[in-house]
Computed example of a mutant assay.
Amino acid sequence: MGKQPKRYAVTASTIEEALGALARMPGMLTQAFSRWKRVRLVVEEAEDERTLNQNALQWKWCQEASQQGDQSASEYQAWCKLHIGMDILCRDSEDYATACRNVLGSLTYEQKLALMRHPFDWPVTRAMTKKQLTEYLDRVWQHFTALGMRLTDPGLKGINADEYREVA
């Protein structure tokens, strides 16, 4: 038997998508009631997801940092995920913070850094909303430029002002 979902969720950006989700609702409710005695139905605003441009920009910056610093792009990425990204996600989600404490709490610093990298690739930036990734990029920019590194201007990567705000 496959892994059962803990919840059923649908995100819609248009009324047509929402009506399509409603059409699937009877099947989801049937499955939910067969598994649980009670269910809660919630309609809430969905956060914007991160953009591919934001994701590409963070990798570009880590590559640029590796050309100017003493670590590989992967090592810089792991440092940013551990020190900047996890700080944001733990602040915004008690569930994420609890999971991090439970799984990472007893590990050494080196082990935590290793988990941020391939092949483990602890989910940090891919778990972020667009707003969280914007904050993450701001803080990555601040970190690297404070070290004297020069990074590609986000405007050159086609990042719009509403997707990334460069710090002053």
Rank of each mutant, 00 (worst) to 15 (best):
residue 52 L to R: 12
residue 129 T to Y: 05
residue 162 D to A: 15
residue 55 N to A: 11
residue 39 V to H: 00
residue 97 A to C: 09
residue 54 Q to W: 05
residue 115 L to E: 05
residue 11 T to S: 11
residue 32 A to L: 07
residue 20 G to D: 15
residue 47 E to Y: 03
residue 163 E to R: 08
residue 54 Q to M: 08
residue 116 M to P: 00
residue 15 I to T: 14
residue 32 A to Y: 06
residue 167 V to D: 08
residue 140 V to Q: 04
residue 73 A to W: 03
residue 62 C to S: 04
residue 43 V to I: 15
residue 7 R to T: 06
residue 118 H to L: 03
residue 12 A to R: 02
residue 103 V to D: 11
residue 88 I to M: 02
residue 35 R to D: 12
residue 128 M to P: 03
residue 142 Q to D: 06
residue 1 M to Y: 09
residue 47 E to Q: 14
residue 148 G to Q: 06
residue 16 E to N: 12
residue 83 H to R: 08
residue 51 T to C: 05
residue 130 K to E: 11
residue 59 W to T: 00
residue 40 R to S: 11
residue 147 L to Y: 09
residue 155 G to Y: 14
residue 10 V to W: 14
residue 78 A to T: 02
residue 53 N to W: 13
residue 161 A to H: 09
residue 121 D to R: 03
residue 13 S to K: 10
residue 96 Y to M: 05
residue 59 W to L: 08
residue 11 T to F: 14
residue 41 L to C: 13
residue 99 A to F: 13
residue 70 D to P: 07
residue 68 Q to E: 07
residue 138 D to F: 10
residue 38 R to P: 14
residue 62 C to P: 05
residue 144 F to S: 01
residue 44 E to T: 10
residue 125 T to K: 02
residue 115 L to F: 06
residue 58 Q to W: 03
residue 67 Q to G: 00
residue 99 A to K: 14
residue 152 T to N: 10
residue 114 A to K: 06
residue 139 R to T: 09
residue 72 S to H: 00
residue 108 T to I: 02
residue 104 L to F: 06
residue 17 E to S: 14
residue 11 T to G: 13
residue 96 Y to A: 01
residue 163 E to Y: 08
residue 18 A to M: 15
residue 82 L to K: 02
residue 81 K to R: 08
residue 35 R to M: 13
residue 162 D to T: 11
residue 126 R to S: 11
residue 10 V to N: 01
residue 58 Q to M: 04
residue 38 R to K: 13
residue 152 T to K: 12
residue 87 D to H: 00
residue 165 R to F: 15
residue 26 P to T: 07
residue 149 M to C: 10
residue 52 L to M: 13
residue 137 L to Q: 03
residue 12 A to E: 00
residue 49 E to H: 09
residue 27 G to I: 15
residue 162 D to N: 14
residue 128 M to Q: 02
residue 17 E to P: 14
residue 131 K to C: 09
residue 108 T to D: 07
residue 42 V to C: 13
residue 105 G to R: 09
residue 141 W to D: 05
residue 121 D to P: 00
residue 71 Q to G: 08
residue 154 P to R: 05
